[in-house]
């Protein structure tokens, strides 16, 4: 049996899974803490891709082209987008906490439309991508883009870092406590509004990181966010709201299933993901790793 095409699909599936994880982790945190389902999450990811692109181009012009210029560009984009996330929570999202779910969805969906057009205004309608000029390497009788391993490595590193942050640091423990009981955390004298802004900024920061890291592999184009956000919803629900481990496992399931489905049903690869989502929602609506309590 020729394993080459399967190996190729596996690696591209895993790198796709990492992007889904980075986005869904933020989505899940924001939903867990604030009960806000952020429709604009993937759009913020897209914006950060464009921001990274502009920074990369600028730095390359100033200091000469080098793949390493991607690093400061990503750091810059993450910082900028986190600030934007902080401001969005402060000035917009905050006003909807007391509202019904559809109104919250609508507010973040309005942001999808506004940010999408803002991209069109600032960067135009052409696709943007970065060519790092990395040579593909030969592996298992096929050529693999080594940058995929960078993405997979970065994704796993962030997953571990996030776990450490949530379980071993003070702020992380406060965030987890806020998921469990907001009023109790507030009663302990912890400034909940600050926690909210911080978590939103963190979530957007993770998305921004994903946007920057993925840029050399996939061109940023208008409208991609609409596809990605529903897949992220699928990941969060399949894994279970509030469960980081679940989000991680579900990202890998969705990423790998998607890239293998492409082999035999190119147009319907996404249909497979929604089929899994339907089965999970019917069988255990609280997700694979979620608890029945939160359902």
């Amino acid at each position: 049996m020729d394993i080459a095409p399967y190996a190729l699909q596996l690696f591209s599936g895993l790198s796709r899974a990492m992007v889904l994880f980075l986005l869904s982790a933020g989505l899940s945190l924001i939903f867990g803490v604030m009960n806000i389902l952020n429709f604009a999450h993937a759009t913020l990811w897209l914006v950060s891709g464009y921001v990274t692109y502009s920074m990369f181009t600028f730095l390359s012009q100033q200091f000469g082209a080098s793949p390493w210029m991607l690093l400061p560009s990503i750091v810059g984009a993450v910082a900028l987008m986190s600030l934007l996330g902080f401001a969005l929570e402060r000035f917009l999202i905050r006003h909807t906490y007391a509202r019904e779910l559809p109104e919250q969805l609508l507010l973040t969906f309005a942001l999808v439309l506004i940010l999408g057009d803002a991209i069109k205004l600032i960067w135009g309608v052409e696709n943007r991508r970065i060519n790092l000029g990395v040579k593909p390497i030969e592996m298992m009788d096929t050529l693999v883009n080594p940058y995929q391993f960078v993405i997979i490595g970065a994704g796993v590193a962030v997953a571990v870092g996030l776990w450490y942050f949530l379980h071993r640091t003070r702020f992380g423990k406060i965030v987890r406590a806020a998921v469990f009981s907001r009023s109790m955390v507030s009663a302990l004298g912890i400034p909940i509004p600050l926690i909210y802004s911080g978590v939103f900024a963190l979530g957007v920061g993770l998305a921004a990181f994903a946007g920057g890291v993925f840029l050399p592999l996939l061109p940023m184009s208008l409208g991609v966010d609409h596809d990605i956000i529903v897949q992220c919803f699928a990941v969060v629900v399949i894994g279970g709201f509030g469960s980081m481990l679940g989000t991680f496992v579900a990202s890998i399931i969705v990423g790998v299933v998607y890239s293998f489905s492409i082999l035999f049903w190119p147009d319907g690869a996404l249909a497979m993901i929604f089929l899994i989502l339907i089965v999970v929602l019917i069988w255990r609506p609280w997700g694979l790793f979620g608890t029945e309590l939160r359902y």
Binding site: T96, E103, L106, A110, L111, L113, I114, D117, A118
Partner: peptide, 13 residues
Amino acid sequence: PLTIGTIILLIVL
């Protein structure tokens, strides 16, 4: 989209 997005934003708020 920018126009309708802004309108929706204002209506929700």
